[in-house]
Simulated assay, not measured.
Amino acid sequence: MDPQPKPRMTVDEFLVWCETAPGRHELVKGEVIAMAPERVRHAEAKLAVVDALRHGLRAAGVPCRAMPDGMTVRIDSHTAFEPDALVYCGPRLDPDAVEVPAPVVVVEVLSPGTRRTDTGIKLAAYVRLPSVAHDLVIDAQERLVLHHRRGAEAIETRIAREGTLRLDPPGFAVAVEDLLPEP
């Protein structure tokens, strides 16, 4: 006997549902996906990323904001992700907003359970968004950053273990070592 198919949701329905649902979730092609509890390494890496992004934005005087996880990025009407960090530019969002409509930088920190998703369907989805100029994938264990940057005609990828990443647009730089948690 076939199990009943799971009901599919739109992103709008999902965002309403999330307001009362326990835990953290993402929506992929209308299906709710529960996010696993995170490990200390993952939490420390996310904290390092947000700190580095905020410092870089402040130092450059760029009118953008770095946000930690918890904010939703809508990919299409049936898919929405919650990156580990992001940067958006322009006016400050409504304090009650749960969605960032036009992120410029999205960041995913790899964990054992998310490695394939973060470097596969999420990367492909984020680069579909015209606002996303940079997708950073942080590998805290290997101590490297995969920097996917929107070029004039293609997505350009750099694997960085040291040095500085220039995130233009929006116009700031961040040291690779600052994006990684302390060893």
Rank of each mutant, 00 (worst) to 15 (best):
V145P: 05
H147I: 07
P7K: 12
P101Q: 09
V176P: 03
R54P: 01
V62W: 02
I121Y: 02
E31M: 06
V49D: 07
L110T: 13
L93S: 11
I155S: 05
D135C: 06
L165M: 08
K122A: 10
R92I: 05
L167W: 11
D51P: 00
P68Q: 07
R128L: 07
L15N: 07
F172Y: 04
P183V: 15
C89V: 10
L123C: 02
R8N: 00
V100C: 09
R150F: 07
P170G: 11
M35A: 01
D2N: 15
A85S: 03
G56I: 12
I159L: 15
D178S: 15
T20D: 09
K46Q: 14
M35V: 06
V62L: 07
M71P: 10
A160R: 15
A80C: 04
A52M: 06
V16F: 06
E182N: 07
S77V: 11
E153R: 10
D139K: 04
V28W: 03
L86M: 08
V174C: 11
P91A: 13
A125K: 06
I155Y: 02
P112G: 07
V132M: 01
H55G: 08
V145G: 10
P183G: 15
K6Y: 11
F172T: 11
M9R: 13
V28Q: 05
G113H: 09
Q141E: 15
R41H: 04
V176N: 09
M67C: 09
A102W: 12
V100G: 02
G120F: 03
P63C: 12
T164S: 05
R116W: 07
P7T: 13
L93M: 09
P181E: 11
A133Y: 00
E142R: 11
L47M: 06
A43I: 11
D2Q: 14
S77M: 09
